[in-house]
């Protein structure tokens, strides 16, 4: 296998909402994942979720459930599926799909109010998805 055989957003093979294969073939970095989750133009997961170990990140939202102990509730494959496209697990969810780049209504170029560029990228890169999954796997009770 080539070292960087990236799975593109159109190639995802969901099984019951889960994605068994790594998107990059590289291990995720939990510390990098934590940063993605707390940073607004990136994952900004804290906008909607409380993540108790990130006590230093102010103003965690409660639109979604607390992520405490989430690794006890879901497998790695399920977590990868939820982060890539939560709507495949939770039908009609308000949780955004982080690894998708088409099928939108009036997509913008980030938060600029300008229309999206023709080569709109997913909100997170394949490696960022893997990093977030690696961090989520540390959330055990």
């Amino acid at each position: 296998l080539p070292a960087l055989a990236l799975t593109g957003p159109h190639d995802l093979q969901f099984a019951d909402g889960a994605l068994a294969e790594s998107l990059t073939g590289q291990p995720g970095d939990p510390a990098a994942g934590a940063k993605v989750m707390a940073t607004r133009p990136l994952g900004n997961c804290v906008a909607c979720h409380e993540i108790p170990p990130m006590a230093d990140v102010p103003f965690q939202g409660d639109v979604g459930p607390s992520l405490a102990g989430v690794a006890d509730r879901y497998s790695e494959a399920q977590l990868r599926g939820i982060v890539a496209n939560a709507k495949m697990t939770f039908e009609g969810s308000v949780m955004p799909a982080f690894y998708k780049n088409s099928g939108y209504i009036r997509p913008g170029d980030g938060f600029t109010t300008n229309p999206a560029p023709a080569d709109l990228q997913p909100i997170l890169t394949a490696q960022e998805i893997e990093d977030v999954v690696a961090y989520l796997l540390t959330l055990k009770e």
Binding site: Y104, R106, P107, G108, D109, T112, T113, I123
Partner: peptide, 9 residues
């Protein structure tokens, strides 16, 4: 509000 959806208002 639409800008905050990463949308084009």
């Amino acid at each position: 509000c639409i800008r905050d959806t990463r949308g084009e208002p």
